[in-house]
Simulated scan of single mutants.
Amino acid sequence: MNRIDELFAKKKSDVLNVYCTAGYPHLNSTVEVLTALQVNGADLAEIGMPYSDPLADGPVIQESNMIALENGMSISILFEQLKHMRETIELPIILMGYMNPIMQYGLEKFCASAEAVGVDGIILPDLPMYEFETTYQQLFNQHNLRFIFLVTPETGEERIRKIDSLTSGFLYAVSSSSTTGNNKAISDQTNYFKKLQNMQLKNPILVGFGIKDKATFQSASAYSNGAIIGSAYIKALQNTINIQATTKEFLNSITE
């Protein structure tokens, strides 16, 4: 089984997925951040591959993308950094990014490299569902990579079911039609979360966008299998001099 599948087979609720940008706050911070997340209670780690035009991301993650690119981060360097990751990291690892740099790297090469270093899943918000189904699905499957699609409050029920049929690993339920780090109240989306819950979809559901503290994590988790925290963690890392201590403090504020 894939590590993502194993996680959801064991843990059905309050799953905490934490996003970090590769190469942030410093070029060589990536594995140190993953280690800190693992030690301090994250269930999943989502690594953002920096891109100059991250459409789904708000200003905090956009800025972390710019800093990581200025630090010299690239897909090639990321895979080099992750080469020995599985000697110490047991967390399921997801790579999140955009098609342009991946196509430049080579999609088949990307999937092979991801499998080789022990990546478990991929999120590409700008890969159309039709293209995935007709052209790329088999490639991801061949390399044991779960492919995670996003749904929003505006996604119709028929399309949600279609997305669910193509998704593997978990379904990423965007809390609002906005960018990451938005300040819209999670509690305002109760009907949307209940709708997803009542549809009895085949995939577990994690809620993302706007999850920033214990209250929002618990609100999202009440109607799903857990939630994804990104911008709030990136903010916590902004001026840290001790990634381990900062991560411990941040995650404890969510889980304890």
Rank of each mutant, 00 (worst) to 15 (best):
M66Q: 14
A116K: 14
Y233S: 08
N141L: 13
L27P: 05
D188C: 07
G156W: 04
M85G: 09
F193L: 14
H84Q: 13
T179D: 01
N191D: 14
L107D: 03
P125T: 02
S177W: 08
V151R: 00
N71K: 12
L145R: 01
N100Y: 11
Q38N: 03
L91H: 11
P153W: 02
L107E: 04
A36H: 04
P25N: 09
Y223W: 14
L127T: 10
D53F: 07
Y223V: 01
S219L: 15
D164A: 13
Q104M: 10
L206P: 01
L171P: 00
N28R: 10
L166F: 15
G181T: 06
T35K: 15
E157H: 08
M1V: 11
E46T: 06
N225E: 03
N252T: 12
P204I: 04
D126G: 14
Y24T: 11
Y51Q: 01
T21K: 08
R146G: 06
E108V: 11
Y233H: 10
T246M: 09
K195F: 06
S29M: 07
N198F: 08
S64F: 03
L150F: 11
N198L: 14
N183G: 12
F217A: 01
V31A: 10
G181A: 09
L91I: 07
D5L: 08
R159F: 05
I254S: 06
N144S: 12
Q197N: 11
D120M: 09
K184Q: 14
I241S: 15
S165W: 03
T35G: 05
A215T: 14
Y136L: 14
Y223Q: 04
D43C: 09
P101T: 09
A227N: 01
M129R: 07
K202W: 00
V31F: 02
G41R: 11
L166E: 10
A220L: 04
S64H: 05
H84L: 13
I61R: 00
I67S: 09
I234Y: 04
P153M: 07
V31Q: 03
Y105V: 09
M73Q: 13
Y192T: 11
K184S: 11
S165V: 04
T152D: 00
M99L: 13
G156D: 15
G72E: 05
C20K: 09
Q104F: 10
E87P: 00
K195D: 12
A9E: 15
L107T: 15
Q138L: 12
N17S: 13
L78N: 02
S224D: 01
A173Q: 00
L16Q: 04
I160N: 08
G48H: 03
Y98Q: 14
A232V: 05
K212S: 15
K214R: 15
M99G: 09
A112K: 15
K109W: 00
V174R: 05
H143W: 15
A56C: 01
P25E: 08
V117A: 06
C20H: 07
T240Y: 10
